[in-house]
Design a protein around this nucleic acid. Structure first.
Lengths: 144, 144
DNA sequence: ATAATTTTTGATACCAAGTATCAATTTTCA
DNA sequence: TGAAAATTGATACTTGGTATCAAAAATTAT
């Protein structure tokens, strides 16, 4: 990890190693808050400022991904292997997130460019849905 | 507009008429703040609470669209005519927006449901690009 | 048209996520 | 090692939005 930081032009600090480890250790994406809690749990509480600063630095450096989940807080997760372009689906109920390995086709992008006369430079796609668990307990009482 | 409100089960107030007018008068999407400023400019300052409340009500009623632009605040815009599902492309430079009459195919959605085991209930797609004008004046100095 | 009822408004206080500042600490590297 | 550079974290602030609730406006019944 030290060399990864080096490669990204970031010095390798205890705080950074802890943050990136926590994100990589998690199977699911974590909110900034969740990362902080994870660190506290492992005996390495860090300041808010450092947390947000590093999440942003890591993202700029391509070490992690940030999923913009709309209104309330973003989610951070380790870059998926291969690192190719993809999207995510978010469960409306439990907020769990899965990668979705599908994307707009180049044909579609071409059609868009032709019909709008814009040059397309990027896009963001977020899918919403219900995960299997939440579909099953759809009728039961909420616990929140 | 009065009857539109009626149809949506909303009583028609001065504040609501002003908000919806401002959004409809704008060629580009407006942030909540921008809507407020617009109203102030036209001599009808309204409270924050009413603004956000009504933006949300209008969206629920299908009178406007909300574009979740990620980190900082949402954008609101009038529903395009015809009102069928579509997306938008936003010029990175001048922030002008055009509707994009294309969408994820049902086949694609089915693939996603199969590969993720989520039931897809919705999605948001935002395209980014450069409009023709901005492509042409790409090299010239910005005015902002 | 007026009164009674219902809805909406807006001032205020609040909240959550994130940023700015800057002195103190840590890391780097000569 | 020790000086220079980078990072940290306490604190205060900002932004975008929500909750509360009395006052005002809109609706409805008379």
């Amino acid at each position: 990890m030290v060399s990864e930081f080096k490669a990204a032009g970031l010095s390798s600090t205890r705080v950074r190693i802890a943050i990136l480890s926590a994100i990589r250790a998690s199977r699911t994406p974590l909110s900034a808050e969740a990362v902080g809690e994870e660190l506290t749990r492992s005996g390495c509480t860090i300041g808010r400022a450092s947390l947000f600063r590093n999440l942003d630095l890591f993202r700029s450096a391509g070490l992690i991904e940030r999923i913009e989940t709309g209104n309330r807080g973003n989610q951070y997760l380790a870059k998926c292997s291969g690192n190719h372009h993809h999207h995510h689906i978010l469960c409306e109920k439990c907020r769990s997130i899965e990668p979705v390995d599908i994307c707009l086709s180049t044909a579609m992008l071409k059609t868009i460019e032709q019909s709008t006369d814009y040059r397309v430079t990027g896009h963001s796609l977020m899918l919403y849905g219900l995960c299997r668990k939440c579909r099953k307990r759809k009728q039961s009482r909420r616990t929140d």
